[in-house]
Design a protein around this nucleic acid. Structure first.
Length: 101
DNA sequence: ACGGTGACGAGAT
DNA sequence: TATCTCGCCACCG
């Protein structure tokens, strides 16, 4: 399943995002969102995936918000033109990408 | 085989 | 809205 997660993540176009739940559901495991998150957490750096384009269903960056990873993720997304509101949320209606087979 | 471990999610307060 | 709680499940010792 990890492989499949990486496969999908690598296809998310710049300027767009998908949620952990979306990926899980697409793979036929609607309740394995956590596993998707774990998969990305342990992504081999060599893969160079656009992991930053994967966020949670609330349109927010998961994990320790003060951590360096969260900071980097937000920076990368902003560079792609994605806007964050005052409470650090992304507008999914505007930026979410519908996974295409 | 078995249980701890999360970058989750939906529902309740 | 912001929090809290509880259910979930593929991995890896």
């Amino acid at each position: 399943m990890f492989e499949e997660v990486y496969g999908i993540a690598s296809r998310v176009p710049p300027g767009h995002v998908v949620t952990y739940g979306q990926i899980a559901a697409f793979l036929g495991h609607p309740r394995a969102a956590r596993t998707v998150g774990w998969a990305l957490h342990s992504t081999p750096a060599a893969l160079e995936l656009p992991w930053h384009r994967v966020i949670n269903s609330q349109g927010r960056i998961s994990g320790p918000s003060a951590g360096r990873r969260a900071q980097e993720q937000r920076a990368l997304l902003e560079d792609e033109g994605i806007a964050f509101d005052d409470s650090g949320r992304i507008d999914l209606e505007q930026y979410s990408w519908e996974i295409i087979p």
